[in-house]
């Protein structure tokens, strides 16, 4: 668990560094052209329906998963869902759907 977590953290750090160069420029272009936020810079998109379902796009991996916690590695950081009876309804290479009783969402 620890070894895999470190690998993902290293990957995040590398991406954060490289993204830093383009993020500012991308954001400027977005503002200039009035494009939807995040359309040019690669960030995760999160859509929550009530507190029962969350659709996350831009997922790069699962860091931790249990009935109470789902920790996902996203493009712009780590998302932590806490709740009860959390289920990964769908999981693909870059998206996940979490259902269950969601109590909180954290961005780390």
């Amino acid at each position: 668990m620890k070894r895999r977590g470190k690998r993902l953290d290293r990957l995040d750090n590398h991406n954060n560094a490289s993204r830093g160069k383009f993020a500012a420029a991308g954001q400027k272009v977005e503002n200039l052209l009035e494009l939807p936020a995040g359309s040019l810079i690669g960030v995760s998109r999160l859509e929550i329906t009530g507190n029962r379902q969350a659709v996350v796009e831009g997922v790069r991996g699962i860091i931790e998963y249990s009935e109470e916690t789902a920790k996902l590695a996203g493009r712009s950081g780590t998302l932590v869902f806490r709740g009860r009876g959390l289920t990964l309804s769908h999981l693909t290479a870059d998206s996940a759907v979490i259902t269950g009783y969601i109590i909180s969402v954290e961005f780390l």
């Binding site: 699962i62 998963y65 249990s66 289920t87 999981l91 290479a93």
Partner: peptide, 13 residues
């Protein structure tokens, strides 16, 4: 599984 494009659903712990 996600990297190998193996679709999993109703995953529970």
């Amino acid at each position: 599984a996600a990297a190998k494009r193996i679709r999993l659903w109703q995953t529970r712990r």
